[in-house]
């Protein structure tokens, strides 16, 4: 079940943020969406999930145009972790994770939620109120909720923002595990080196268009780094595999 963008034009309040994006995400792929601020990363995710009307073009999810999917079907097809992490009320962590599975009976949803909290390293935090947790812990609770959706497409907007380095790797490893199990995973990232390490494929957005799309080493070329990000950089081969190093272009 693929997620297919065909010449998508979209933007909030009628603005043209995406100016013709075509892209196909296949099951089992871990796709990192990169680009400077304002390039259209979040707009791409929101338009692709039907949270934003399309100005032109088409998005297909579960072999149907996104606008034609009923709420329940769309939820079964895709799970979304938005960048906005404000939680309205001080619900227990377990209850928040449980909200990923409103389709399951309460007992099953609770067991699943507990398992997902354990996966994000929050065993023993089940009864704690989310607003009493630190920002990083709250982000992990929200990641647990995303895992609890069990959707074949997982979409995460900056899942590593505000996490300490260890938790960043934990979050990305968990998403990679989901991809290995056959889910399509799409995430936006700002850390280019991290993206190059964990993603099987990178898509670089520049000014609302796809500037490069492919394996990390093919995409993050010195030319792309220079024109899109204003950086000088290159991959260096190490015992641990290639590592991307960058600095501001003079």
């Amino acid at each position: 079940m693929s997620w297919v963008f065909t010449d998508v034009h979209a933007g909030p309040a009628g603005r043209a943020v995406l100016k013709g994006v075509s892209l196909t995400v296949a099951p089992g792929e871990m796709v990192g969406v990169l680009g400077p601020n304002g390039a259209g990363k979040t707009t791409l995710l929101r338009a692709g999930l039907g949270l934003l009307p399309l100005q032109a073009g088409q998005v297909q999810l579960a072999d149907k145009p996104i606008a034609e999917l009923k709420p329940a079907m769309r939820a079964r097809a895709a799970g979304y972790l938005p960048q906005e992490r404000r939680v309205g009320w001080n619900l227990a962590a377990l209850r928040i994770a449980e909200l990923g599975a409103p389709d399951l009976p309460e007992g099953q949803a609770q067991a699943l939620a507990a398992a997902c909290l354990a996966r994000v390293g929050l065993e023993g935090f089940e009864g704690r109120g989310v607003l009493d947790l630190s920002g990083g812990e709250r982000a992990r609770v929200l990641l647990a909720r995303l895992l609890a959706t069990r959707a074949p497409l997982l979409v995460a907007d900056e899942p590593t923002a505000g996490l300490d380095p260890d938790a960043q790797f934990l979050a990305l490893d968990l998403l990679a595990q989901e991809a290995a199990r056959g889910a399509g995973v799409v995430l936006t990232l700002h850390d280019l080196a991290l993206a190059a390490r964990v993603c099987s494929r990178l898509v670089v957005l520049h000014d609302g268009r796809v500037a490069a799309d492919g394996a990390p080493r093919e995409v993050l070329t010195p030319a792309t780094l220079r024109t899109v990000f204003g950086l000088d950089g290159a991959f260096i081969d190490t015992e641990d595999g290639p590592v991307l190093v960058t600095r501001r272009a003079p």
Binding site: R76, V87, D103, L142, R145
Partner: peptide
């Protein structure tokens, strides 16, 4: 009630939760 609980997570998450928001 179910929708009110889901809205704890914000508009977008609720919209994609599968509930008829």
């Amino acid at each position: 009630a179910r929708g009110l609980t889901m809205l704890t997570l914000g508009e977008e998450t609720a919209a994609l939760s599968g509930l008829p928001m």
